[in-house]
């Protein structure tokens, strides 16, 4: 088992290197890279220019060659790609992710500031999904084939066919005060007037901003989680040990909730580790829909702004989260399932 986890940890290294090399290379070889972006910005007088939206950046105003050289040096564009990558990697190992040129702040600081926002919505959403799906899945398994089972299956089908962010867009149109009802704010993490609110108002405000995005995150896992719970429980209920438990006279309640459920929840438990990766993936879309200034939105804007120090920083962060999530899943597996002995 120790060997297994040691191998998983060791495997993180090539995975990590592979991911960063691929993306580093992409950012180098495509036009519209950081230098062009900065040049455009300088020409526009330092304001937040329109994102160039692709290739073909005009350089009509003369930028002194010396400045260009300076920029190239700063981004290591004057060196071959492998050296630039190694320099970037060296900085990374000393926890220096570089500085964003759009925000003028260290990337690490930007991420640290936004991560709690992203994880706040994502984690609440996933917890909500677990809270709804596990009881629902259990109920569906116990009443398999009943009217309740069929009716809730309709929900599951619908949930599977709507991506969370798409539901978010529809909810925003319906409840965001556009053409229909004005129930919820148009998004964001908190109101702009947050600092002036008293504690009670703060709670209400936060809730007000939380409900819709959290609902979208929860929808993301709703269908699969419910079905996983139901099928896993049904599979266990068909096993011989359950028949034995019934045969020795235990109550149905005890058989289902103590004997069967414990085994059925193993696959659901282990899924928690992967939730981090899913939250991150969902955040790119849901944060864009709700204008939430989290990691996903930061990544989105940075890509559009060609702010590659931030892009690479988020990539590093995202990949590390996925890798750690995988290991967490394995750990949970070992903790919940006494049969598992990884080799």
């Amino acid at each position: 088992m120790a060997a297994y986890f040691a191998r998983r940890l060791l495997l993180m290294i090539p995975t990590f290197l592979g991911v960063t090399v691929i993306v580093f290379a992409i950012t180098r070889f495509v036009p519209g890279g950081p230098i062009e972006q900065i040049i455009v910005r300088m020409q526009m007088g330092g304001g937040r220019g329109e994102s160039a939206g692709g290739a073909g950046v005009e350089t009509s105003v003369a930028i002194p060659e010396a400045v260009k050289e300076e920029l190239k040096k700063h981004f290591h564009f004057d060196k071959p790609i492998w050296r630039a990558y190694l320099l970037w990697l060296g900085d990374l190992l000393s926890l220096n992710l570089g500085k964003s040129y759009t925000y003028g702040l260290p990337v690490l600081e930007l991420i640290a500031e936004r991560f709690p926002v992203s994880i706040y919505f994502g984690l609440i959403g996933y917890l909500l999904a677990y809270l709804v799906c596990i009881p629902l899945g259990i109920a569906k398994a116990i009443k398999h084939g009943s009217a309740f089972d069929f009716a809730s299956s309709a929900l599951v089908f619908i949930g599977y066919s709507i991506p969370g962010w798409a539901l978010g867009a529809v909810l925003l149109v319906l409840f965001g005060g556009g053409s229909f009802w004005n129930v919820f704010p148009l998004g964001g993490f908190r109101s702009a007037s947050w600092e002036q609110l008293n504690l009670f108002e703060k709670v209400i405000d936060q809730l007000h901003h939380t409900i819709l995005p959290v609902f979208c995150y929860a929808l993301g896992g709703f269908a699969t989680l419910t079905i996983l719970t139901k099928n896993s429980l049904m599979e266990n209920l068909g096993q011989d040990y359950i028949r034995t438990a019934f045969a020795k006279g235990l109550s149905e309640r005890r058989v289902i909730f103590v004997h069967a459920l414990r085994n059925s929840l193993i696959p659901i438990c282990t899924g928690l580790g992967h939730a981090i990766g899913l939250i991150m993936a969902g955040s790119y879309l849901i944060e864009k829909v709700f204008n939430i200034d989290g990691i996903g939105y930061l990544g989105f804007t940075s890509i559009n702004e060609r702010d590659f120090t931030v892009v690479m920083g988020i990539l590093v962060f995202n990949t590390l989260l996925i890798l750690l999530g995988n290991i967490l899943s394995d750990v949970l597996y070992v903790l919940t399932d006494p049969r598992i002995r990884f080799q």
Partner: peptide, 13 residues
């Protein structure tokens, strides 16, 4: 290794 890539993000890039 490939399966651990943050796909959506990379495709966005």
């Amino acid at each position: 290794i490939w399966s651990n890539l943050p796909f959506l993000y990379i495709i966005m890039i």
